[in-house]
């Protein structure tokens, strides 16, 4: 399911990206509140998908516990805000090292002791579950009864304190997604990116080419965790409530990886496309179900499962690479 790297940026890709960005910037002027929420959710998943893709798509390390980085960051920023009145961006600065350190611990345990492949994936789930149960019983963060952020009406949007209307949150997550895109692009073209790709393709051959695979895998897990942490801060301040079950649950971790898999693992644009396809379809489904007056709590998840199944069987490289070929741009957009 790995996608070959095609060199040559091509003016076409740049033009398409420019048009897309313009459309995103203009979107809030044309959509209603409901659609705006769907767009925010899609961008949120696009952002996390890109962060996850650094580990799996670039370095070939399957993490199924990425919710732990979101949850930790969310709790760090929210706790600092509610207990000490510390602003979210400073909370974010505090959350980055926490998430990165957590990634480093998981990575160290796994990579030092030869826990690889799906066993690595299982270890990441185990850690996320460990955190979920821990937070569920930790009174400092209100345990299972949840942590709530005070919601007060603000006269104007305050980006510094992340208090404001959905349009503000939309632009915040849009900017974050764009920054993550550029970051991934730069990483992939750098020395570190090439070392990751080598490890993803064949770890033993990478080592024979002189790459210290342990070090580069550690970079992958810590960078991915650090990038993911912003999503946690955003989550906390957008939804204003945190429940361990909600943020650390296995299903959260799985939702994260669906977008990139459906869009195209290892590509730059795949995670973004996948997030929009998946969120869009899921919202349509929800709309149809609620319009028909049914109450089917697991329907969205079943739909996710079917999507994953169909894509795995029919499009092992994801939706983006064949689409990119049709559009005449590099499947890699770099």
């Amino acid at each position: 399911m790995m996608v070959p790297r095609v060199a040559g940026a091509g003016r076409r890709s740049v033009l398409l990206l420019g048009a897309l960005l313009a459309a995103f910037v203009a979107a809030p002027f044309f959509v209603n509140d409901y659609l705006l929420t769907v767009l925010i959710l899609s961008l949120y998943f696009a952002y996390i998908g890109q962060a996850w893709n650094i580990m799996m798509g670039f370095a070939g390390q399957l993490s199924l516990g990425h919710a732990i980085y979101i949850g930790l960051a969310a709790y760090v920023a929210a706790t600092l805000f509610t207990r000490l009145g510390i602003d979210p961006w400073i909370g974010f600065a505090a959350a980055i090292p926490v998430a990165a350190a957590c990634g480093a611990v998981i990575g160290f345990l796994a990579f030092r002791f030869g826990v690889a492949g799906v066993y690595f994936a299982i270890l990441t789930i185990a850690f996320a579950e460990f955190a979920r149960i821990g937070f569920d019983n930790w009174n400092l963060v209100n345990a299972s009864s949840g942590l709530f952020l005070p919601v007060t009406q603000y006269a104007h949007n305050d980006v510094w304190r992340l208090r404001g209307d959905p349009t503000m949150f939309y632009y915040v997550i849009l900017a974050a997604t764009a920054v993550a895109f550029v970051l991934c692009h730069l990483l992939l073209r750098s020395r570190i990116g090439y070392c990751w790709l080598a490890i993803r393709e064949d770890e033993e051959a990478a080592r024979a080419a002189g790459i210290d695979t342990f070090r580069y895998k550690m970079y992958a897990v810590t960078i991915s965790a650090a990038v993911t942490s912003f999503a946690g801060v955003f989550y906390a301040f957008f939804y204003n409530n945190l429940f361990p079950e909600q943020v650390f649950g296995i299903s959260r971790s799985i939702e994260i990886i669906l977008g990139p898999i459906i869009g195209g693992v290892g590509t730059l644009f795949g995670p973004i496309l996948g997030a929009f396809v998946l969120t869009g379809l899921a919202e349509t489904l929800n709309f149809v179900i609620s319009a028909s007056g049914l109450d089917l709590p697991g329907a969205t998840q079943v739909f996710y499962g079917v999507c994953l199944l169909v894509v795995m069987a029919a499009l092992p490289d994801g939706v983006w690479p064949p689409l990119a070929r049709r559009l005449g741009v590099s499947g890699d957009v770099k």
Binding site: A299, Q301, G305
Partner: peptide, 15 residues
Amino acid sequence: LLLAVAIIISNALLI
């Protein structure tokens, strides 16, 4: 693939 099967089973049971 089996993850997809897992999601479908548990949520179908939920429905």
